[in-house]
């Protein structure tokens, strides 16, 4: 399978080996075309350094990687990328439209495509009415929107966003989420770096969690949030025995006909279902139990921290 982005054992050390900071310690990631991939991690985990390595803003100490089939840092690799950095700063004397024109030209977009793309991207981020206002007058949210438009100006195949919803109000966040999903549906690859876990959970296809320069887990949101062998069981009202008396230790929690149950195997699960039916209890739903990404994140970061100490 060809990937939009791959890295192999990417290491970045600032300073010398003994006393320097090991910002990345062998990060290997593969992001397929057309997926939204999110990188999570606490402050100082190395997420931004990783992105900077991808873009050639800092140089990896060792390891390798490819973006859209070109080695990291190469001009060719950057041609297909749109990037929105964290705490970006546009020349304050420029208007929104001039920002898009300037960065569009730097991305190699020529007229008449440039004018067309400016119209399209301003429309996508809802900034058409502010196109002739200098960016010094923009709010934080408007800055993010024009930043997103800037990242899309060259119609990139891979969009790298570092905290794209930072400072954006809930309505704006929802709009940005919708834009990202729309981009994925158009076949674009989105690499997202965000600390807003609930947002990441809603739109990401795959998620990686980084701690102290290492990936501590990676997988689809479904895989990560599914609690192994635990299910939420809902049964209809009944006069008979309680679930605990039928399913014994398998019941972890029972409350108003809704229970959390755990089984070692599928065989055990099906036996339990048969048993409930034989007691005349009707099953309304049985779904794998999920925890939130936030719970998983805190749990993993906590364990990694303990392991590190």
């Amino acid at each position: 399978m060809e990937f939009a982005l791959t890295t192999d054992s990417l290491v970045k050390r600032f300073g010398n080996e003994a006393t320097g900071v090991h910002a990345l310690q062998g990060v290997s990631i593969s992001v397929g075309h057309g997926e939204i991939y999110s990188l999570l991690g606490p402050n100082g985990a190395g997420k931004t350094t990783f992105i900077k390595c991808l873009l050639g803003i800092v140089f990896p100490t060792s390891g390798s990687g490819y973006i859209l089939g070109h080695p990291l840092g190469e001009i060719k690799a950057k041609e297909g990328i749109g990037y929105l950095p964290e705490n970006h700063r546009y020349p304050l004397h420029l208007t929104g439209e001039q920002v898009l024109s300037y960065f569009g030209k730097l991305s190699g977009v020529t007229e008449p495509t440039l004018s067309k793309r400016i119209e399209e991207t301003l429309d996508i981020v809802g900034m058409k009415d502010w196109r002739n206002t200098r960016v010094r007058k923009y709010s934080k949210g408007m800055m993010q929107r024009i930043g997103l438009a800037q990242a899309l100006i060259n119609d990139p195949k891979l969009i790298i966003l570092d905290e794209p919803t930072d400072g954006v109000d809930p309505v704006g966040r929802k709009e940005i989420r919708e834009v990202l999903v729309r981009l994925r549906n158009m076949g674009k690859t989105v690499f997202l770096n965000s600390h807003l876990l609930s947002e990441v959970e809603r739109i990401s296809d795959r998620v990686a969690i980084m701690q102290s320069g290492r990936l501590i887990t990676e997988g689809t949101v479904n895989d990560l949030t599914r609690t192994k062998n635990e299910y939420e069981l809902k049964v209809s009202a009944h006069d008979g025995k309680s679930l605990s008396s039928i399913l014994k230790e398998a019941v972890l929690r029972e409350e108003d006909g809704q229970s959390d149950v755990a089984f070692e195997s599928l065989q055990e699960l099906n036996t339990a279902i048969d048993s409930l039916r034989s007691h005349g209890i009707l099953i309304e739903s049985l779904v794998p139990k999920r925890t939130s990404l936030e719970d998983i994140f805190i749990k993993l970061i906590g364990s990694a921290e303990v392991e590190r100490r």
Binding site: K52, K78, E79, Y83, N87, H88, R89, Y90, P91, Q150
Partner: peptide, 16 residues
């Protein structure tokens, strides 16, 4: 001014 934090990242991400 070109090398200020926040500005340079953006410039270096472009195919220039």
């Amino acid at each position: 001014s070109m090398m200020e934090k926040g500005a340079i990242d953006l410039l270096l991400s472009k195919p220039v």
